[in-house]
């Protein structure tokens, strides 16, 4: 009898956990205005800063600016409309190459001149040609197309654009004469130059992370009740000290005033390293544990990769 009860409890727990959880694409969250302008830029002055986990003092000998927030769905929709109109990008079926696989996807694509290739072990060749920027028919895309004009799903207008490949992110920045930040540019903008007790900042706002500092796995953010612990993207600049419908945030801007440099979405970096060609991702996402939000942690993927947890911002 006791054995039966034990086994039944196990089965019940398992079944309870198997109840279908909402996917990130299945429900739409309410629109939340954060008051942070996605069109704004922050100046990062030239000078040294502690780089990487071991705080190597690294000099960036030029001033540069970086977007205060990630590029939003609304901004990316505007880009697509402009670039489609002037023929910079196209729409339709395109080959996607990843490792030894090639498949076709429908979406927005454009030309990329390719990377130098040395045939190193596991090096992936990125050839010149048309590359997928955004798979328009994939689940999780927050852009819709009506009569050839792209627009954001209204509730997601100020969320970071996701499902964009590195090619798509790079094309966005280049279209406006900007560039994707290098890892060094990004990290300096994220952690600043200050050293406390011999260490640079591990998070954009300082030394410790609280649940209401950023959007990460099981951070109990505004939307986790709707989407479960994996969560979803949050509007850019949400963590600015304001309270939204009872949800209090901490002001989590970096020392240079950038938001979402930890959590929300991974951000594509501009570097192309020889002998590998993976593109780096920084910042962690709503899907990451807090340890992966530390400013020096990176992730990487092929430039053809797109994901509901990957976005970008530009530098100039």
């Amino acid at each position: 009898m006791k054995q039966t009860l034990f086994i039944l409890t196990l089965i019940a727990l398992t079944v309870a956990a198997c109840v279908p959880a909402p996917s990130v694409g299945a429900i739409t969250p309410p629109y939340v205005d954060t008051g942070i302008d996605p069109e704004s830029w922050a100046l990062i002055p030239a000078g040294e800063f502690p780089y990487g986990q071991h705080d190597h003092m690294t000099n960036v000998d030029y001033d540069y600016e970086m977007m205060v927030t990630d590029v939003t769905n609304e901004q990316y929709a505007s880009f697509l409309n402009a670039a489609l109109a002037d023929g910079t990008v196209s729409k339709g079926e395109v080959d996607v190459e990843a490792g030894e696989q090639v498949w076709q996807e429908v979406g927005i694509y454009g030309y990329y001149p390719g990377d130098s290739f040395d045939g190193y072990k596991h090096e992936e060749e990125i050839k010149a040609g048309d590359k997928l920027f955004l798979p328009t028919q994939a689940e999780g895309v927050r852009l819709t197309e009506t009569n050839g004009i792209f627009s954001s799903i209204p509730e997601y207008a100020n969320h970071p654009v996701t499902m964009v490949t590195w090619f798509g992110a790079n094309a966005y920045c280049e279209y406006y004469g900007w560039h994707l930040p290098t890892e060094i540019e990004w990290e300096k903008a994220a952690r600043g130059t200050e050293m406390v007790n011999g260490y640079g900042f591990p998070f954009p706002w300082g030394g410790h992370i609280e649940r209401n500092n950023a959007n990460y796995y099981s951070s109990s953010d505004l939307f986790e009740k709707m989407f479960g612990k994996l969560g979803n993207t949050t509007p850019v600049g949400l963590y600015n000290g304001k309270t939204y419908d009872g949800y209090e945030t901490l002001d989590s801007a970096s020392p240079f005033g950038l938001y979402d440099m930890a959590g929300n979405v991974w951000q594509w970096m501009g570097d192309d390293y020889p002998d590998q060609h993976y593109r780096m991702l920084r910042g962690g996402s709503f899907y990451s544990y807090a340890v992966d939000l530390r400013v020096w942690k990176n992730n990487s993927a092929g430039p053809q990769y797109y994901s509901p947890q990957v976005g970008f911002r530009c530098a100039r």
Partner: peptide
């Protein structure tokens, strides 16, 4: 499972691991 639909799988598998 597609990346976008992993919540259910994550819930179940994490529970079984923890259990």
């Amino acid at each position: 499972v597609d990346e976008i639909n992993q919540q259910g799988a994550v819930n179940t598998l994490m529970l079984l691991m923890d259990l």
